[in-house]
Amino acid sequence: MSTELFFVQLINGLQYGLLLFLIASGLTLVFGVMGILNLAHGSMYMVGAYLAWYFVAITGSFTAAAILSAVVALGLGILIERVLIQRLYNRNHLDQVLLTIGMIFVFNSLQSILWGNDPYGVAVPEALSGSVPFTDNSSYPVYRIFAALICIAIAAALYFVVSKTRLGMLIRAGESNREMVEALGVNIKSLYTIVFAIGVMLAAISGIIAAPMRSIVPGMGESVLITCFVVVVIGGMGSIKGAFVGALLVGIVSTFAAVLMPTMSNMIIYIFMILVLLVKPQGLFAK
């Protein structure tokens, strides 16, 4: 591999990793704060992509579609938390797994009923459809650079909210001692609703951002869910910083694996995960 190709692939890996972070961040946030393992997280990613496609078809504008989809996802998150997830806080992980697996089936069926089983695609928004010269005969699409920047911006915003704001303080407090936070008069119920809805919205936003780069097909949520779990486990369950580092590592490792040993590429990230867990059984940034 030439040095040039090495850097090209490094950039590909970073870009993929940033998107992975965005998807995984909601999963790890919800787990860290609420102790809920949301297996339907991938479905939220799928919902985001389908909503983006649906609203682009109606409004004709990607920006409008993105905003609408994110708002709908936020509402959906509140609804799911209030109606379903709230009943799980005092139950064990098995019950959570059963409910959230059930949600995967429900969302897949809803997708099939509402939007059919045809594969769809969303066009890259006009303003971002250009590309910048890259190597001798390839160029880098502006939209993918933009997507990476959005991912970085959201990562920074998450960091800021969690470490510098009052909400973030409550989130951190809720993570370490739920009863104490409640005893101090904080309404932990609505805090949980907010956190869960943000988690759902983050997954949906990743689906929206991914829509112009990927194909929108049934089952797209499940495939991304597994990779997300690898990211979260490597980074340490519940750690946002861990998810960031884990996502970049998984992005880079899987990109190079895909080029160097394509037939085995799916396996490599799991081997990588095993290696990380052998050294750090709780993940890189475990609490």
């Binding site: 030439s2 040039e4 190709l5 090209v8 692939q9 590909n12 890996g13 870009q15 993929y16 190597t135 001798d136 005969n137 390839s138 990927r214 194909s215 495939s223 899987s254 990109t255 190079f256 895909a258 080029v259 394509p262 037939t263 085995m264 590429s265 799916n266």
Partner: peptide, 22 residues
């Protein structure tokens, strides 16, 4: 000749590889 695991769709790195091999 590249054979990717089904149904993986992470093609970007391969497209970069194609550009490089020309």
């Amino acid at each position: 000749e590249v054979l990717l695991p089904f149904p993986s769709t992470n093609f970007q790195s391969h497209v970069s590889d194609i550009a490089d091999q020309n």
